[in-house]
């Protein structure tokens, strides 16, 4: 009797954690570039880069893995609060590095990282992809 109860516990526990995993999670990839990489490339290089990344994104979309992918305008503003005082300043290359973002569906962080690693922009130096799970609560919403 006790054994059955125990087995049930473990089973339910495992099922719960499995349920959380198989429910495909959403991830945001923040594309970081130290400086504006694109402007330093030659026109030919730029074109190739766009084509490669485009193919990669298109592939993800076909697999149903891609929810959104957008580049961000390099100019922007940073609004900050310090002890209730709100101030605003222009973003510069020095304090911002996010060149764009993807929102991707994956089974878990591992798969998300694998997807990130397949990004052909890694053929160039200087890029970083920050892979962040979008918070989700299983069984709610």
């Amino acid at each position: 009797m006790r054994k059955t109860v125990l087995l049930m516990c473990l089973l339910v526990g495992t099922l719960t954690s499995m349920a959380q995993k198989s429910e495909s999670a959403k991830f945001m990839f923040l594309v970081h570039s130290g400086k504006n990489q694109m402007t330093e490339m030659s026109a030919q290089h730029q074109k190739e880069h766009i084509q490669k990344v485009g193919a990669y994104i298109g592939g993800l979309a076909k697999l149903g893995k891609l929810i959104d992918a957008q580049p961000l305008a390099m100019e922007g503003e940073l609004i900050s609060a310090k002890d209730g005082q709100v101030s605003q300043k222009k973003l510069t290359i020095a304090n911002q590095t996010i060149a764009g973002y993807y929102v991707v569906k994956a089974k878990d962080l591992e798969e998300a990282i694998a997807i990130a690693k397949a990004d052909p922009r890694f053929e160039e130096n200087g890029w970083q992809l920050e892979v962040r799970p979008i918070k989700q609560v299983s069984g709610i919403n």
């Binding site: 961000l72 922007g76 940073l78 609004i79 609060a81 996010i98």
Partner: peptide, 10 residues
């Protein structure tokens, strides 16, 4: 002390 970065999507 929060910060919000505002960026336009191209």
């Amino acid at each position: 002390n929060w910060k919000i970065e505002v960026r336009q999507i191209m």
